[in-house]
Design a protein around this nucleic acid. Structure first.
Lengths: 218, 218
DNA sequence: GGTCGTCCTGGTCGGTTGTCCAAGTCAAGT
DNA sequence: ACTTGACTTGGACAACCGACCAGGACGACC
């Protein structure tokens, strides 16, 4: 096989691990299976990574980076609240429903991280990334539809991630994507009731919310 | 060791498997670990169960039965909507937050079921049980607070399970139980907006909802 | 008290896993 | 041409896994 500098070989192995784990589950992502998927021999893996855990951590990190990059890819123009919220939810759910394997893998990674000490940081990084990504989407909604929130934005983001997780899990189990999409759209309706229009200023930086003056966001 | 009829030994092994898997994760629930936890020798497990998978399926079934029984245990008396909804959510979250291990195990079981063909039925049974349990709780709310729903009850149940799953996952990851409780209470507020008061009849059997005349519940 | 079916024991087997290592291969620099 | 260092190879190892089995121990029933 062709020789590669260790940095590129690492990325190739990370992609191979991602492919195997997404297709066959995290338990099937053995060192041998990953090496075979990448088309390299067994020893290469431990030449590029000290542990199998280091490879899995790198794979998880790649996932969160991808998610964060993907969620910020689709940015609509100026539109009213209904259009932008429905559009964001629709794009988001389409992205999820088209990647069943990776979505399931992310839950496997979460549970594994919560059990095995050597993967401890994986889950929290995963969720910190999701929360902050959703917060950025929420900021985009604020700017696009000229609204603010009646509760702190971080709480809204947490709720969004929770609802998405819940409906995604249900969809993974029973395969009913239409019901999941409908449920998320219903949640979108609820989200709109948490907004208040904000008229002035082309860029509202912060504290666009009314009421709830005890912002405890760190 | 004392001799037991195979039926009782099976239940003991199921409990032992539940204990090991809740404490150390589903991967740690090996045949040897379960036998050691139960205080029996290795061969007993394959004497009582044909497969390890059969034992795991029995364990999963025991979990869903417990959950279903537990969720119907706490039934308040006649009260107004705010009291009963807040009370149900509080009791439900208390039950979850006091059993971190089993809660995490249920997610491990779900993902494992979705990957391994021999556990295929586990996840769907798990969720069918949860959906129907929540539906029964919703019926209890209807009777207690004299209300109906503006959308089909099954969709409400699905939303409830999804939101609980999402906040539970977040809580498992970051350990912030207070934020999870607050988020669920906020969802409870939203739930109340989906209700309509229903005045007459001591027992309203079905079709207490207004609008949405296309009931598609099978 | 002897017999028979139920239950238990502990070792063994083949297979898989992560990890390691001695040797081999290749390209670049002198 | 030769050396040096980076990269690759494939086998070996111990540990662990689920599954299996020959045999021992126990209690109930005739």
């Amino acid at each position: 096989m062709n020789r590669l500098p260790v940095a590129e070989r690492r990325e190739q192995l990370i992609e191979a691990a991602l492919a195997v784990a997404s297709r066959d589950g995290i338990d099937a992502a053995t060192v041998r299976a990953i090496a075979a998927e990448a088309g390299v021999s067994l020893g290469v893996v431990h030449y590029c990574f000290q542990d199998k855990d280091e490879l899995l951590r790198a794979m998880a990190h790649a996932i969160t980076s991808q998610n964060l990059a993907r969620s910020l890819g689709d940015l609509p123009e100026r539109a009213d609240l209904d259009t932008v919220v429905d559009g964001v939810i629709d794009a988001l759910w389409t992205g999820i429903s088209e990647s069943r394997g990776p979505q399931l893998l992310s839950y496997e990674l979460t549970t594994s991280s919560l059990r095995h000490a050597e993967l401890n940081q994986v889950a929290i990084e995963q969720y910190r990334g999701q929360w902050s990504a959703v917060e950025q989407v929420l900021e985009l909604i604020e700017r696009t539809a000229q609204v603010g929130w009646t509760i702190p934005r971080s709480l809204v983001a947490r709720a969004v991630v929770a609802v998405i997780d819940g409906y995604s899990l249900a969809w993974l189990v029973d395969g009913d994507g239409e019901q999941a999409r409908a449920g998320l759209q219903g949640f979108g309706q609820f989200l709109k009731t948490l907004t208040v229009p904000v008229a002035l200023e082309p860029d509202v930086d912060e504290r666009a919310a009314v009421g709830a003056p005890d912002g405890a966001t760190a």
